[in-house]
Simulated scan of single mutants.
Amino acid sequence: MWIAFGSLAAWLWLLLCQGFFWRTDVRLPAREEPAEWPFVCVVVPARDEASVLPESLPSLLAQDYPGRAEVFLVDDGSSDGTGELARELARRHGGLPLTVGSPGEPPAGWTGKLWAVRHGIGLARARGPEYLLLTDADIAHEPGSLRELVAAARTGGLDLVSLMARLRVESVWERLVVPAFVYFFAQLYPFRRIAVDGSRTAAAAGGCVLLRADAAERARIPDAIRHAVIDDVALAKAVKRGGGRIWLGLADRVDSVRPYPRLRDLWRMVSRSAYAQLRHSPPLLAGTVAGLALVYLVPPVALLAGLATGAAWAAAAAGGLAWVLMAATYLPMLRYYGQPRWLAPLLPVTAFLYLLMTVDSAVQHYRGRGAAWKGRTYARPDTALDES
């Protein structure tokens, strides 16, 4: 009974005191078009992205941006012809100027993506841009995306504007797992708190980050976060610690085109960085597992056990109310992704999958296969910022 009431208390606190994380109305803030549009360089790190590049790269090249803009795609040692495909797409579609570079293999202490970002930013800085748009190779932008990002940054005096790209939700497993991924992220990093000056909460979504070039230099991006596996959160923390103003919200005009048709694909996406998020700490892992069980698994167990035994009615009532609150807070995210409401009561099932993914992330870390991604393995990734 006390465990069930503890779960209910946790849900009441999450509902009212965690930055209203469950609301999905945090979108690009009010913006006005500037009198003079700044120069923007778009940096796209890409490793073996030939399957998604035909959908994403033309959308960047076709941006309806009134000012000067260039695209820098960094081919990070691809084996599928990503670089040459990018050049061919640029020849075929035209639009913004495209430069394709290659940084070579990353040295010790660097993740591959951040090494590619460093190379791309280096190429861009030679042009002297005011803003950098860091975007992934699987992200498609509607024609006015860059224009809206820059206008929002200028209007709000923001050093970093990031959008959580709308992920693909088509397969059965995507429907079950993907909306919950964004829901859990917002629960950890409430979007409303991120924008508050002086708040310790900082995060970004790596698929779409507009960053002032001078703020990047002050925060030593990407060198200061060169070993970060969860690079988007580390980037936002570095910018905010350097005095920058940041903002993160949900996207309306930015979409991921990468498919995750099987559970194995989604499992790998989550487990590669879950233990890094816990700073590779066994006590934090144990606390997270216990917390997930208390918050997400206890409510249905308490309700169903109480109904099945005909006893412990107080525990059953507390569990049932907690389950209702859980489903209610999940409904806005399901609506945002256009998914049916009947998926909301299944959130405990999804949470159990995430619990298993987190444990598997720790197991793979101690087997020396932590943070494996596209042929590279980072045995001991680190999300902490470099203080040197």
Rank of each mutant, 00 (worst) to 15 (best):
L292V: 14
A372T: 15
A10W: 15
D265C: 02
L250D: 04
F184N: 07
S78A: 12
R91A: 15
V177L: 15
G370C: 12
Y330I: 04
S171A: 04
F39L: 07
I139A: 05
A10P: 06
L167W: 06
H93T: 04
R68K: 13
R376S: 13
Y189A: 08
T329E: 08
A274Q: 14
W115C: 03
D382I: 08
C208Q: 05
V178S: 01
V117I: 14
L176A: 13
S59G: 00
A290V: 12
G287F: 12
P58A: 01
V26R: 15
L211K: 07
R127K: 14
R264L: 09
V349E: 00
A69S: 11
L303F: 15
G101K: 04
L292C: 10
D214F: 01
G19T: 10
L123E: 13
G244E: 07
K374P: 00
L53W: 00
C208N: 14
G338N: 05
A165G: 03
P345E: 11
L334G: 04
W247P: 00
A316K: 01
L385S: 05
E32P: 02
A186M: 10
V257H: 00
M164E: 14
R193Q: 12
Y336S: 02
D214K: 09
V295L: 14
A204T: 10
L73D: 06
G338E: 04
K374Y: 09
A372K: 10
G310N: 06
P106K: 07
V52F: 00
W173C: 01
V209I: 15
V42A: 05
D75C: 08
S281H: 10
P332E: 07
L325E: 11
R241V: 02
A311H: 14
I225G: 10
L284G: 07
L98V: 12
S256D: 14
G368Q: 11
W13M: 10
E49Q: 12
L133D: 01
G122K: 00
S145K: 03
Q277I: 14
R87Y: 03
V26Y: 08
Y296P: 07
A69K: 01
S51I: 00
I230A: 10
R127A: 13
L133W: 01
W323T: 09
A290L: 15
A312L: 13
V74Q: 05
G156H: 06
R118E: 04
D223Y: 03
A290D: 06
L292K: 11
A10S: 15
V26G: 02
Q18T: 09
H280L: 14
A116W: 05
A344W: 03
L211H: 04
G291S: 12
L89A: 00
D252S: 11
A180G: 06
E170I: 02
V254C: 04
P106G: 07
D252W: 00
Q63A: 05
A276F: 08
P300T: 05
L210W: 05
H119Q: 10
G156P: 03
A317L: 15
G109S: 02
S256T: 11
E142H: 09
V233W: 06
